[in-house]
């Protein structure tokens, strides 16, 4: 599963960043295997995705998100 499959509010651990389509810059900003990623629960905007990766807040396009493999950590259902 990839970041693109996460619902807003869900947290996951990044497992795979080996795709050549992931820009190096993203890794440098902390998007690495082992890092925790959370899809920020803001509203229904899905592209770009608003993420919190190890306390760095950034936005990437859906097509890049599909390249980043994750294991889901916990489910936080939206309350509103």
């Amino acid at each position: 599963m990839s970041i693109a499959d996460l619902k807003s509010g869900e947290k996951a651990i990044i497992t795979d960043t080996s795709s050549q389509l992931i820009p190096l810059k993203l890794l440098e900003m902390g998007c690495l295997p082992g890092s925790e990623v959370e899809v920020i629960k803001i509203n229904k905007i899905k592209d770009p995705l608003y993420l919190n990766i190890n306390d760095t807040f950034l936005a990437i396009r859906l097509e890049t998100a599909r390249e980043i493999g994750v294991d889901i950590l916990e489910k936080e259902y939206e309350t509103n």
Binding site: L21, L26, P48, Y50, T56, F57, A59, I60, E63, T64
Partner: peptide
């Protein structure tokens, strides 16, 4: 391939 990364600062 296009790519887009932007930091969302405080």
């Amino acid at each position: 391939k296009t790519y887009f990364v932007i930091e969302m600062p405080d």
